[in-house]
């Protein structure tokens, strides 16, 4: 009797936990769906004045989030280009030297960096990059994303290499290969699935980050490709729309885009991980 009650309680509370996911998905979908159109992805954010005019005339707000999409892609691209190789090499170091004291220190610091609030990464990048460069820039934004991605890639690389059978590495070395070639030709290819999934998850984790970009990339109301100038990003736009009464209509379309992007990356990563594990 008591057992049944407990089981029911657990099932109900577990089901309740799932509610917010569907509530959030549902709300963003319902309110953002009719904003999505071709021009939403190809046009930059309207000025507050244009938006106000449109509202007064009872028309839908013109423009879209193209500046944010381009900015996000540029900053993410630069961050990935540096974070992936450095993260993989560092992860390989940790997997190859598990007993070294230095490796243990690096391992703890990686955990610490991973737990550091993103707003602090923003402050740091501001001090390191924005102040010396005398201005906000795409470079600064990508440094912030780089610092946040690094620990995630390190961890997934380290863990994937560590669970490879030892025989793989030994067989490679027994053929006379040196460590570098065995790592490059045998261990890393065998670990590719895990590392790739890790990179996808790292991207999905940082793509929605807002706080660190507020003090580094700042934002920009038109499509821009320069890396040394302020630039926009999708989450930054959502924050701007949230704070600007004239642009609130655009919040949901931008959020829907971001949410779908993040969740698709997440699901793809999990699916690939499952597929490659078999």
């Amino acid at each position: 009797m008591k057992d049944k009650l407990m089981l029911w309680l657990i099932c109900i509370l577990s089901a309740l936990t799932a509610v917010p996911l569907f509530a959030i998905l549902g709300e963003v979908l319902l309110r953002g769906y009719d904003q999505l159109s071709w021009s939403f992805f190809t046009e930059p954010t309207p000025t507050a004045y244009r938006a106000m005019k449109a509202i007064q005339a009872g028309e839908p707000i013109p423009g879209g989030i193209a500046n944010g999409i381009v900015g996000t892609m540029i900053m993410l691209g630069m961050a990935v280009v540096f974070a992936v190789p450095i993260g993989i090499l560092c992860g390989a170091y940790l997997a190859e030297n598990p007993k070294r004291r230095f490796a243990k220190v690096v391992s703890y610091l990686t955990d610490m960096l991973q737990g550091t609030p993103s707003v602090i990464i923003g402050i740091i990048t501001y001090i390191w990059v924005v102040v010396p460069m005398k201005g906000y820039s795409a470079i600064a934004g990508s440094v912030a994303l780089f610092i946040m991605m690094l620990p995630l890639i390190i961890r997934s690389t380290e863990e994937t290499i560590k669970i490879l059978p030892a025989s793989l590495k030994e067989a490679g070395l027994a053929l006379g290969g040196n460590r570098a070639r065995v790592m490059l030709r045998v261990q890393l290819p065998a670990a590719f699935g895990g590392i790739f999934t890790g990179v996808l998850l790292a991207i999905s984790r940082v793509i929605g980050e807002t706080a660190p970009l507020m003090f580094t990339a700042l934002g920009c109301s038109f499509v821009r490709f320069a890396v040394d100038k302020p630039i926009s990003a999708v989450p930054l736009l959502i924050w701007e729309f949230f704070n600007d009464p004239n642009l609130q209509e655009l919040i949901w379309g931008a959020s829907l885009f971001l949410l779908l992007f993040v969740l698709t990356l997440n699901i793809t990563a999990k699916y690939l991980a499952k597929k490659w594990n078999q």
């Binding site: 984790r205 959020s255 949410l259 999990k270």
Partner: peptide
């Protein structure tokens, strides 16, 4: 259920903020 919780963990915090604010 664990996929659902994984996805919950993946939602960007700014979207949680919007949902909290508007709902």
């Amino acid at each position: 259920l664990s996929t659902v919780t994984d996805l919950l963990a993946g939602i960007p915090s700014i979207i949680y903020g919007l949902w909290g604010f508007y709902t």
